[in-house]
Simulated scan of single mutants.
Amino acid sequence: MNSKRLLALAIALLMFPQIAQTLYSPALADIGQAFAVGPQQAAQTLSVYFLAFAFGVVLWGRLCDRIGRRPSMLAGLALYVGASVLALRVSTFNGLLLAQALAGLAAAVGSVVTQTLLRDRFKGAELAQVFSVMGIALAASPAIGLFTGASLVHAFGYRAVLAGLLLLALALWLWCLRSLPETRPQHLTTPALFATLWHMLGDRDIWRSTLLVALFNIALFSYYSLGPFMFERLGLSASMFGYSGVVLALGSGLGAWLNKRLLRRGFSGSRLIRLAAFIALSGGIGVWLMQGSGWFVLAMLWVVLAFGMAIPNVLGSALANYGDQLGTAGALFGLFYYLLIGAGLMLAAWSQALGETLIACGALALLVIGRQS
């Protein structure tokens, strides 16, 4: 499989977890009404997803080192199809949470296995450029997910979103069955899980990367979990929340494009991450100041622009010292930051305070970068 076709498939697989959540986000208010639960409980479905996702990256990361990248991807997508069927059949909110947990566990395959196969094929500066291209493509995810999700909910309710996710996972499974290559090195030995774990727990660079990935993701996904209820309180429709995804996608795409341009001009990744943290903090302050009006979405643009700049640089360099154990190291790295993302989103759901959450994420990111320097 040539590099262009592999990148096209990798983009689709990396977009899948993000599209799954942004597609689901406009359905939160409808889910709250259907199951007679409040905003805090409905928003917890995203937290459950991310916590399960954290353990999923360990499962699929280990499996892709043991049995290969291709069979792991096919198994994960098949599990997601099953979780979607379960979600369509449940009649209680606890049943929906269980289905979401299984979906999160399964969707993790799209993140950790895809990143592993990219690290198999590309190295060094070339890998950073690949992640920059991925960042530009991923910028379309919020627009696709929010707009499509809002349209489906408006027309048919939350069950249409679940059906759409089922069809999407099935289409990706068929594409992988036909086209996904096996990139696992032939003589790769599966590293010991706990030995790798203890090594990474003592690695300060890994912890800095973990915190940065978590903080920028909490900032982004707190909008998806709290945004529907903010729009509802402001008297704005779910469709308008869906349209906001188009605006935010432009910001994320601009951030990824700027990142790629500045890297080519010789800017270091650490310098760009610091700049992104300043931008995220500024955006958070703007959201806090304008949260009484729908114009707060314009300030949110700065937050997603910062995400598009920071994440490719953090991910591109995080596992540079773990080249002989990418699957296991990538799985544990994902476990670390997705546990933090899940915990952070739980706090955000409890507080129902988007502006304050964004300010905290930007300030903490600056603190982490400051300690690094």
Rank of each mutant, 00 (worst) to 15 (best):
L6V: 12
L13F: 06
Q18D: 15
L28P: 00
A29Q: 11
G32F: 04
Q40D: 12
Q41V: 15
Q44G: 00
L46S: 03
Y49V: 07
A52P: 04
A52V: 07
V57A: 02
V58L: 15
L63I: 04
D65K: 05
R70I: 06
M73R: 09
L74K: 04
V81Q: 13
A87L: 02
V90W: 10
F93C: 14
L102G: 11
L105R: 10
A108P: 06
V109E: 01
S111I: 15
S111A: 10
L117A: 02
R121M: 06
V130K: 04
I136A: 04
L138N: 11
A140D: 00
I144H: 03
L146E: 01
A150H: 09
A150P: 10
V161M: 08
L162R: 02
A169G: 00
L170C: 13
L172D: 12
W175P: 15
C176D: 01
S179P: 01
P185F: 09
T190K: 05
T196L: 05
A214E: 11
L220Q: 15
Y224P: 05
S225I: 15
P228F: 08
G235N: 10
M240K: 12
M240F: 13
G242Q: 05
V246I: 04
L250A: 00
G253C: 04
A256L: 07
L258F: 12
L258G: 06
L262E: 14
S268F: 07
S268V: 03
L272K: 08
R274V: 09
A280E: 08
L289W: 09
Q291H: 12
G292D: 11
S293K: 10
F296P: 05
V297N: 00
M300N: 00
W302N: 01
G308V: 00
M309F: 09
M309P: 15
A310C: 11
N313L: 12
V314L: 07
A318M: 03
N321R: 15
D324K: 13
A329T: 11
A329H: 10
G330W: 03
L335Q: 04
F336P: 11
G342L: 13
Q352I: 05
T357A: 08
I359G: 07
I369D: 07
G370F: 10
